[in-house]
Computed example of a mutant assay.
Amino acid sequence: METQHAHAPARLASCARMPEWMRHFGHPTGVLGALAGHLMALRNRKRSLLVLTLVDPRPGERILEVGFGPGLDIRRVSRTAAFVAGVDQSPVMLRQAQRRNDGALRVGKVELHQGDARSLAFADDSFDKAFSINSAQFWPEPFVVIREMYRVLRPQGQLVLAVQPRTIDASSRTSQETAEELAALLTSGGFQEVTSALKPAGRVPIACAIARKPTLREPAR
């Protein structure tokens, strides 16, 4: 079990075999990273809107996004939620997201951090919901990230993970297997009411897993 926690599941680990240019979508740097961010902003609207129906942001909620990229989903969620925080390891994405959320940042409705999702800069039980879209496949230690997201969620807080496989041979079967692995990851991290789903989005569906933190605190595994 410890070995399983230390490494990404098979489908998520496939990003290690991605060409170098594709890795800029996981950790955008330099000019290519900036271009990747602008491309994500242009191409990913449909996927984001589909996944955000699962997040279902509501007035009064505090919501966290891990891997905010160019910051468009932060902006979408902040239109409804009371407060939205985000963390992304890329300084290039941080700058793009800051520009897109300038007004909300100035009034304190949005808070953005450059950092490692394995060590979130938030107190225990800080958020009602958390989500991550097309970021989990780039996490070097998915179990550690999931336990951090578990920590910062309030009891009965909801977590949504979504990944749309982008490898050349990806198919609906790839998405189904990815959804199952995401669900297994959430279960191993202590979440309950875990379900998986596929959201239609062209040839390769979006793999989603949804879960809740239990009301009674469980010891870390």
Rank of each mutant, 00 (worst) to 15 (best):
M1I: 12
Q4S: 15
H5P: 11
H7G: 13
A8S: 14
A10E: 15
R11V: 14
R11K: 15
L12F: 12
A13D: 12
R17P: 07
R17C: 14
P19K: 07
P19Q: 09
P19F: 10
P19S: 06
W21F: 15
H24K: 06
G26T: 04
G26R: 05
V31Y: 09
G33I: 04
A36F: 08
H38I: 10
L39R: 14
M40E: 15
A41I: 03
L42R: 15
R47C: 12
S48Y: 11
L49D: 15
L50Y: 12
L50V: 00
V51P: 01
L52T: 02
T53F: 02
T53K: 15
P57T: 11
P57W: 08
R58S: 13
R58W: 01
R58L: 13
P59C: 03
G60S: 08
E61F: 02
R62L: 09
R62C: 13
I63G: 06
E65K: 12
E65N: 10
G67Q: 02
G69K: 03
P70I: 10
A81Y: 03
F83N: 07
F83H: 14
D88M: 11
R95Q: 14
Q96Y: 08
A97D: 06
Q98F: 06
R100L: 13
V107M: 04
V107E: 12
V110N: 04
L112K: 03
H113M: 00
G115A: 07
G115V: 10
D116Y: 01
A117G: 08
R118F: 05
L120N: 05
A123P: 05
A123R: 13
S126H: 10
F127Y: 07
K129D: 04
K129Q: 11
K129T: 03
A130T: 08
F138G: 01
P140V: 01
P142Y: 00
V145H: 00
I146M: 09
R151W: 03
V152R: 03
R154N: 07
R154A: 11
Q158T: 14
Q158W: 09
A162F: 09
A162C: 09
V163T: 13
Q164C: 12
R166P: 01
R166D: 15
D169V: 13
Q176C: 11
Q176M: 13
T178F: 00
T178Y: 06
A179F: 04
A179M: 03
A184H: 07
L186D: 03
L186G: 03
L186R: 02
T187P: 00
S188C: 02
G189S: 00
G190D: 02
F191S: 00
Q192E: 14
V194N: 00
S196A: 07
A197T: 10
P200Q: 02
A201K: 07
A201N: 15
P205A: 05
P205V: 10
I206S: 00
C208V: 14
A209M: 05
R212D: 00
T215N: 09
L216K: 12
L216F: 11
